[in-house]
Every structure is written in C-alpha cells, then in structure tokens.
C-alpha cells in the first residue's frame, strides 16, 4: 500500500514539472513579458533595463526557470509585485476560503446528485426518470454565473434573507454566519455539479442493471433491495468515487466564476486579480498551488479507489 502511494507520488513529479515549465514558457516567452507588466507602458529604456536587472530577468531563461524551481521546491514562490507580499502568504490567506466553498459545494452536489441519479436509474424511461433527467440537464445548462445572479435577485434583493456579497467567515468561529455566507455560492456551484453526478450515476447504474451478476443475484432469491443496494451499488459507486474527486479538484481553481459573482475571497479571485495586474510571480504561484492541490486530490482518489476495488492490485 505504502509502496503504491510512493510510486504514484513519483509519477506526479513529471506532470508537475511539465506543467510548471509550460506555464513558465507561456508567461515569459511572450513579447513584452513580465518586464512590461512591471514598469508600465511609458517606461524609458533605462527604467526597463533597471527593472530587468533587479528581478534577474537578464539571465538566460533556463537559469531563471531553474532558479525559480529551486526556490519553489522549498516553498518560496517569490514576492507579489503588486502587493509586495510573499506569494505564499497571499495564497495562504485565500486557501481556507476556497476549501470552505469546495467542501460546502461538494455536500450540496452529493445531496442533490445521488438521489436524483439513483431514483431515475431504478425505473429507466418512466416519467419520473424523464423529469429527473430534465432537471439534470437544466442543472448543467444554466450557467453558474447566471444562476448566481438569479439567486442573488431572489434571496438577497427580493427576500433580503441572505447577503448578496459573501465574505469568508471560518465555520468554527461563527457557524451560522459562515453558513449564511456560503449558502448561495455553494448552491450555485453544487447544483451544476449535481447535474454531472446524477447523469454519471444514472448511466453507470443502468449499465450495471444489465450485468450478468444481477441476474445471478436475483436467481439465488435475493430481495430486490439487496440486489440494488449491495450488488449494483458497490459496482456503480466505484467509478463514482473518481468523478466526485475530479469535481472537488475542479472546485479549487475552477470556482473563479462563482467567486466573482458573490465577490467571495477565494483563490480564483486572487488569480483574476493577478492576471489583470500582470503580477507574474502571483500568477505562477496560484497556478502551481492549484495544480498541486488538483494532483493531490487525484492521488487521494486513486489510492481510495485501489483500496475499495478488490480487483486493483496495488502491490
């Protein structure tokens, strides 16, 4: 087991290396590059030269990259140009908010997606299946930012129940306020993902229902409750784990839009700011952290999967 995890970790190294190199190449290979962002548009050649030297940008690109990599390996992602603070600190401030939202949205997605998927799979083609499938389509088709706007219009503008702008409050400090703040963004994000989950679960349940072992289970006199609840569910939930993991991973950086709608102080909005101010160290830092989290969640899912599925030999 430990060996399996270690091997997986080793495998991640090339992915992260290629990815960081890719980001680096894109950001630095472009005309203008970081210097243009640093000095502003009306800079004199002397200013440009000074800034270039100050940030070590006159060195060969490979040396710069290796230098960045060496420092990144020990947790130093540089200093934000715009905020003049270490990138690691800036990200550290936003990460808890992002994790709060990710967990809350996952809960909403599971609470909505699993029942919808299971109920519509039990009787494929029935009116209830068609109604629930239409619901999933709607959940997927409505853009999150528009759904967010509608929710704000209704719950904040009309009913004045919930705040239109969601701040970050740690749940262990003021649970109620935290929930009030998280509710709308979590629903916005969760509804969309519940559509994906419901669709996926329905499809895998329906295909499992046709499997031979289901006939065997019925032939030995098992009640339908056990046939579906144990035999089919165990098989259908295995791939479901992967999907849930992927969804959670995508919340880390992919919630940019939802965060923008609710002006929620997450990692995504930090990245938008970084991009709009051309704050290169911050852009790199955000993307690398998002990638690492994404990859870590995927690893956790792989390990969990191998643990749950007896067919996978992780020896």
């Amino acid at each position: 087991m430990i060996g399996f995890v270690l091997r997986r970790l080793v495998q991640l190294v090339p992915v992260l290396l290629i990815a960081s190199l890719g980001i680096w190449a894109i950001l630095y290979a472009v005309p203008g590059g970081p210097v243009a962002g640093l000095v502003g548009e009306n800079a004199t050649p002397e200013q440009i030269a000074a800034v270039t030297a100050q940030y070590g940008l006159d060195r060969p690109v490979v040396v710069q990259y290796l230098d960045w990599l060496r420092r990144a390996a020990v947790g130093d992602l540089g200093v934000s140009i715009y905020a003049s603070e270490p990138v690691v600190d800036l990200i550290g401030q936003r990460l808890p908010a992002t994790l709060h939202l990710a967990v809350a949205a996952t809960l909403v997605a599971l609470a909505l997606g699993i029942p919808v998927g299971v109920i519509s799979a039990i009787s494929p083609g029935s009116w209830i299946d068609r109604a629930l499938s239409a619901w999933s389509a709607l959940a997927l088709g409505v853009p999150t930012f528009w759904l967010g706007i509608l929710l704000i219009l209704w719950f904040a503008v009309d009913l004045r129940w919930l705040p239109a702008v969601s701040g970050y409050v740690p749940i262990w400090e003021e649970p109620l306020t935290a929930i009030r703040n998280l509710l709308l963004p979590a629903i916005t994000l969760g509804v969309y993902v519940s559509g994906i989950l419901a669709r996926f679960l329905r499809a895998s349940l329906v295909s499992e229902l046709r499997a031979d072992y289901v006939r065997t289970a019925r032939a030995k006199g098992l009640p339908e409750r056990q046939v579906v609840g144990i035999h089919i569910m165990r098989n259908a939930l295995l791939p479901f784990i992967t999907i849930v993991g992927l969804m959670m991973a995508s919340f880390i950086g992919g919630a940019v839009v939802t965060e923008a709608v609710f002006t929620y102080p997450g990692l995504g909005r930090l990245l938008i700011q970084a991009i709009s101010t051309r704050d290169y160290p911050l852009i790199q830092g955000c993307i690398v952290v998002i990638l690492i989290l994404y990859v870590a969640i995927n690893l956790a899912v792989d390990v969990l999967y191998a643990y749950v599925d007896p067919r996978i030999d992780y020896g």
Partner: peptide, 11 residues
C-alpha cells in the same frame, strides 16, 4: 449460467 467470467459479482 453460461459465462463464469460475468455471473459472479466482481467486488
């Protein structure tokens, strides 16, 4: 049943 490869539940 015919195919022992699929008549048993794999998990």
């Amino acid at each position: 049943f015919q195919d022992p490869g699929t008549t048993l539940n794999p998990v």
